[in-house]
Nucleic acid binder design. Structure first.
Length: 402
RNA sequence: GGAGAAGUGGCCGAGUGGUUGAAGGCGGCGCCCUGCUAAGGCGUUAGGUGGGGUAAUCCCUGCCUCGAGGGUUCGAAUCCCUCCUUCUCCGCCA
């Protein structure tokens, strides 16, 4: 949710920023509905004021009140209609991108910040399907395409990866969370996943519940509706969860292997900060992710996503992309975003500032994800980085059958 | 799944149809008092939103909000309905 009052006071810059996300039109329609809404408010307020009495009315007053009331009903209905239109439009306006975010809407428009580590020289790299045990055909017979079992050493590698990330972040003061992954619609609206990315969310209509595509969804709602004491900020969490995505619109992409599946596990960082601290916090979350990838000896690069390729909630997103030898390119394995006050407005998470309650800023970022375990398999062709050995990973992933 | 009770401001907690957006307490903030500390005194302190004024972090003013949404009534925190949540008991269960 954008700051509507600020936007109508000075719409120019907001509109220009939103145009970079392709949302200038949505913004215009919102402002137009807002104008109509504000035009109706004074009349309704005036009629409501007329209905207020301090004691029992006289018979003459009663007659007058009846007349006012029917007029008021009509005015309130009109207001409610316009208000619903305005609110629906407001949900469709994304968070304006930060000035440093590049233009463009495709992956190719991302701005590369740096490359760290050297891709390995491999004559004939085997891919993760050969190096790990995923049982994709058996999974497909059970659950369909884009599912896989992690079995044996392969599973232990993944578990060690999660434990490494959870331990590291816990040591940095992030509070560990195991959240619910079945959530109501409000949690998805609150993070901006609805209505912008509705098609990618699994729904359980019998129970009015949805499967969260990331721990960001339930963790963002942890403090929904609260006014937080300022001395408790920043609040930092690290959550482990299974993530579910329909991958609608990804037909034909990454059809081979475990790169893009409907269900995966992720360790996610999440911060709530005062507004003036959120850009430093974004760098901190990125640094945490880079440390993990670096300590896993994975070659990677960092990019800034272009305005049109970010989520609706994000003002600026860094992706950490790890080298995949079987594909000969870097692939996204982490996404770190500052949603500024966008989610905080929707979820009404505030802190008590100098001049009353203000929305906090909220940030989320991948720490580690299953896809990194695939990269580990491919970059070291089955050998396991030393950092994972204390967490129960095998020194070398051996695939046994059946 | 069945039966019952309850949801009020940052927190606790009064309030069963009309000067109640809401007593009192705690916490917070300001001032005073006291070598320091502790204690004490006085005052202040819900959120949202529309409009107006100003150099303004400010002031004036309208409206909405007592879990959410509907309804009854001239008038609802208070009565009715639906939903959500919490607690107690029973049943089931990793």
């Amino acid at each position: 949710m954008i700051d509507l009052r600020a936007a109508r006071a000075d719409p120019g810059p907001v509109r220009a920023a939103l145009a970079r996300k392709g949302a200038a039109d949505a913004f215009d329609r919102l402002l137009e509905a807002d104008v109509r809404w504000r035009a109706l408010v004074p009349r309704v307020d005036e009629l409501r004021a007329k209905t207020k009495l301090k004691g029992k009315p006289t018979p003459e007053q009663l007659d007058e009140l009846q007349a006012v009331k029917s007029e008021l009903r009509a005015a309130e209905d009109a207001l409610a209609t316009v208000e619903a239109e305005r609110d629906a439009l407001a949900l469709r306006v994304p968070n304006p991108p930060h000035d440093e975010v590049p233009d463009g809407a495709s992956e190719d428009d991302a701005r590369e910040l740096r490359r760290v580590g050297e891709p390995p020289e491999l004559a004939e790299p085997r891919d993760h399907l050969e190096l790990g045990r995923f049982e994709m055909e058996r999974a497909a017979r059970m659950s369909g395409a884009r599912f896989g079992y992690w079995v044996g050493d392969t599973a232990r590698l993944a578990l060690a990866l999660y434990r490494l990330a959870l331990d590291r972040l816990s040591a940095k003061g992030f509070v560990t969370v195991l959240p619910p992954v079945l959530v109501r619609e409000a949690a998805l609206v609150g993070t901006g996943a609805f209505p912008s990315d509705e098609a990618n969310v699994y729904e359980l209509p019998e129970d009015d519940l949805y499967l969260a595509g990331t721990a960001e969804i339930p963790v963002a709602s942890l403090h929904a509706g609260e006014i937080l004491p300022v001395d408790e900020l920043p609040l930092r969490y690290v959550a482990f969860s299974t993530c579910f995505r329909r991958e609608a619109g990804a037909a034909g992409r990454d059809t081979r292997g475990m790169i893009r599946v409907h269900q995966f596990n992720k360790v996610e960082q999440f911060s709530l900060t005062p507004p003036e601290q959120s850009w430093d916090e974004l760098e901190l979350l990125l640094q945490n992710t880079e440390e993990l990838v670096h300590d896993l000896d994975l070659p990677y690069r960092v990019v800034v996503l272009p305005a049109g390729d970010m989520s609706s909630a994000s003002a600026k997103t860094y992706d950490v992309e790890v080298w995949f030898p079987s594909q000969g390119r870097y692939r996204e394995t982490a996404s770190i975003s500052n949603t500024t006050d966008f989610q905080a407005r929707r979820l009404q998470i505030r802190f008590r500032g100098q001049h009353g309650p203000e929305p906090v800023h909220m940030l989320n970022g991948t720490a580690v994800v299953d896809r990194m375990a695939l990269a580990i398999l491919e970059n070291f062709q089955g050998d396991v980085p030393a950092a994972l050995l204390p967490y129960g990973a095998p020194e070398r992933v051996i695939v046994r059958s059946p």
